[in-house]
Design a protein around this nucleic acid. Sequence first.
DNA 1: TTGACGGTTAGACAAGTATCTAACTATCAA
DNA 2: TTGATAGTTAGATACTTGTCTAACCGTCAA
Lengths: 98, 98
Amino acid sequence: MVAKAKQVRLTARQLERIARALADPRRYQILEQIGKCGGTLSCSAVRECQPVTAATLSHHMKELETAGLIRIAREGKFATLELDRAVWQAYLDHLKRI
Amino acid sequence: MVAKAKQVRLTARQLERIARALADPRRYQILEQIGKCGGTLSCSAVRECQPVTAATLSHHMKELETAGLIRIAREGKFATLELDRAVWQAYLDHLKRI
DNA sequence: TTGACGGTTAGACAAGTATCTAACTATCAA
DNA sequence: TTGATAGTTAGATACTTGTCTAACCGTCAA
């Protein structure tokens, strides 16, 4: 039995944003790390694996967020990143139609 | 019965090239057009649908080719573009693992 | 309250790139 | 052979973007 995810409809603009977000290897790695760690990850855990400044990481997080690929939950001093699997699946489905 | 495609192993560099190739909307449209027209398409057929000069189109074709996404067959004056479905499938499989 | 810590914002800079024009090569028909 | 046609290559230009530093904002413990 397959998990029933909420169907997501991506706009042309969002599809474009996602493609651009994935084009940077660093961003892809970040997304991969978030995805493979069960789905959520703290911001500083990501930083430990990426040799970039906090400012640069913050920039990449925003790109991934505006693309819709991740959600960012801010609590107190900390931020937690979560992969939006419905969006990810919708993107895969879109590519599959080629 | 599913068509049995040759298994393709993509290198990290090639994965990166593919992601970058897909990041440009124009290139994505070209790839889409090739893919949806049964798999092969003449170069000038693509040009009729894209408001760019021949030089620009040639540039995009080369990007798609070096990414491994398409093959270009040159015969006489003409060029024919063909989607490499094995590479495409391998890329989808890679993304699916996130 | 004050300092340390996690993260963001603004601005600068270097590298990459999508596009064009112009000049070129190669093929084919008249 | 000559002209037309399909596509390529080289170089220029304008725009995008990944990265940094520096300054900033909020939170929390001492």
